[in-house]
């Protein structure tokens, strides 16, 4: 018992940081979402107005999709696309690192190479796509000089394509690391046993490697999904400020000092994200498999 007390002291610094800068603000957000506001002031209150406005017209299907639902739909489109591509690429990279690279030294070197992009900031990595994909960017000019196209391709930048590309580029490593981790724990003799039983490379992947790296896949998915669901910078920069996302709505509301409306939006977003994470945890018992 004494031992447990003294070890919990070790967790105290970080616990207090989390309590002050995460739990407390989160509670404040929930509280403020029930407040009233004018153009220049916040009025403490307990009203549902912010939520009512958020879902205004949403249940009147004759009008088509309301703004909120349409925004969520657009956000989830990018969540899904990003998840799909980061999972595919991340799984492939992890598979290569763990099972194709023989020496540990080479594994570490290649792994470090994967992290090099993280030496520069997120925003810079986003912005650097612009000169590449723009109307007079490197891709368009080289394709035109090669004679493949006569006119610049318009959908390369400030489009769903560039947003998805940006997300995938930024967040694939968040898939690679946890999947790599759980794959590295797979006993090599299991692969040999499967080969001995006649399994082809593809059958080994589907029957042995995927089920045994489930926890890594799940953790990576949680990372990517929770990051993308609240994003407003990437969608702003690479979407040319033309694509709607929930994060962006919150950001805009904040810049107009409509804090209670932004808070209500944030509460809804956090709830949906939590529900998604809970659903994923139900599929795979992450704690059991760590």
């Amino acid at each position: 018992m004494a031992r447990q007390n003294s070890s919990s002291i070790l967790a105290l610094p970080f616990a207090s940081v989390l309590a002050t800068f995460f739990i407390l603000p989160l509670i404040l957000v929930v509280v403020v979402s029930f407040w009233d506001y004018t153009e220049y002031s916040l009025i403490p209150d307990l009203i549902l107005m912010n939520y009512e406005e958020l879902f205004y017209g949403c249940f009147d299907w004759s009008e088509g999709l309301c703004t909120t639902f349409a925004t969520y739909l657009s956000t989830f489109k990018y969540v899904f696309l990003t998840w799909f591509f980061t999972l595919g690429i991340g799984f492939g990279v992890a598979l290569y690192l763990v099972f194709c690279v023989r020496s540990l030294k080479m594994q570490i070197v290649l792994f470090l190479i994967c992290t090099i992009p993280f030496w520069t900031s997120n925003v810079i990595r986003m912005i650097s796509w612009i000169p590449l994909l723009g109307r007079n960017g490197i891709v368009n000019t080289s394709l035109m000089s090669m004679g493949v196209i006569d006119q610049p391709i318009e959908w390369l930048l400030y489009s769903g394509f560039s947003v998805t590309l940006g997300f995938v580029h930024l967040y694939t490593l968040f898939m690679v690391v946890p999947i790599f981790n759980s794959m590295a724990k797979i006993d090599r003799s299991l692969i040999e046993a499967a080969k001995d039983s006649g399994a082809s490379a593809w059958q080994i992947i589907t029957n042995i490697i995927i089920p045994l790296s489930r926890s890594g896949i799940m953790i990576g998915s949680i990372f990517v999904i929770t990051i993308v669901v609240g994003d407003f910078i990437t969608i702003g920069v690479l979407g040319g400020q033309q694509i709607a996302s929930v994060g962006k709505i919150i950001y805009v509301e904040m810049s107009y000092l409509q804090f209670p409306a932004a808070a209500a939006n944030a509460v809804v977003l956090v709830s949906i994200t939590l529900l998604m994470v809970a659903a994923m945890m139900r599929i795979v018992n992450v704690r059991k498999e760590l």
């Binding site: 003799s189 040999e192 046993a193 006649g198």
Partner: peptide, 19 residues
């Protein structure tokens, strides 16, 4: 390949599929 051989191997730590 191992799969095509009429042999079967029993591994040191059994290598049973845990899942």
């Amino acid at each position: 390949a191992p799969a095509k051989r009429p042999t079967s191997m029993m591994f040191q730590d059994y290598a049973l599929f845990p899942h």
